[in-house]
Amino acid sequence: MWRDLGLVVLPLLAVLAVLPAVYDNGALLLNFVVFLVLAQGLNLTYGFSGYLPFGYVGFFGAGAYGFAMSVTLAGAPPLLGVLAGGGASLLVGLLLTPLLRLQGAYFGLASLAAAEALLHLIGNPNLQPVTGGPYGVKLQAGYAPLLTYALALAILALTMLLVAWLRHARFGLRLLAARDDALAAAMAGIDIVRGRLVIWLASALAAGLIGAVFAWRTATFFPDAVFDLNFSIFAIVFTLFGGAGTLAGPVFGVLLLYGLYNAIGLSAPQYFQLAYGVLIMLLALFFPEGLAGIARRIADG
């Protein structure tokens, strides 16, 4: 645990904390943190309970809209709005808990359908007075680049602490046992339903909080922008690439792949989609445990 904190969490946070002083593209830095949180959030649910939610972006969008609606409709101060965003994603997570009864592919697709349904609902023209409908949201919450970045770092810290704790606590080990064999886990006295629920809600909360911060920073967005399936896809690719269930894996995934994504430029998204598509296939075929699996193979000789 302390080794995880000292080798991964603290150095990462320290570098991210000083970067704004030497690098002036604050929006890009925030995006890095957003994807770090999303990758670790997805890592919570996929890495520890085996549920792969293709619709993970639904929590991000719910957080963004929870923030937007609490600020515009209820006049909440932005900091409270961020909590409202987290609350909104928790609520969506609770509503979707019945999905946890489903097996792998069924769960993945049902969660994707849920995220799409949420997008259609929020973007519905009939709901324009409430959500802004298809015309999106224009926020006057105040542009606060440093505060939003600091908040994002705090959310990242909490998410990574949770992952680090799970990797060493008995609760995390029990989740992994249930992932290996649910029936045997039940016989070992493990309350699988409760464990999965806890991890699912934690994962939802992480995405919701960071979605709220993203909304605050972005201020103006359409529903499609915060429910963009690419958020899910990126989070999945980064996590799988690095190695699900590890702490450093998703971090490497984000830094390498999202770094590459930005280094080459954004002019032609289909090139990245192609690269990611091929990468996903290669991972599934040859390296199902990602970089972490390769590292383990080398370490084992």
């Binding site: 085996g50 792969l52 293709f54 097996q103 792998g104 592919a105 993945g108 896809i233 999945i236 799988l240 289909q270 090139y271 990245f272 989609q273 192609l274 990611y276 598509g277 091929v278 990468l279 996903i280 296939m281 290669l282 991972l283 599934a284 075929l285 199902p288």
Partner: peptide, 19 residues
């Protein structure tokens, strides 16, 4: 196999869409 196939064909889907 079940989870990996889902991931694999998701990758194929992305590849085809991009192409």
């Amino acid at each position: 196999p079940e989870m990996l196939s889902l991931i694999l064909f998701f990758g194929l889907s992305q590849t085809i869409e991009a192409l």
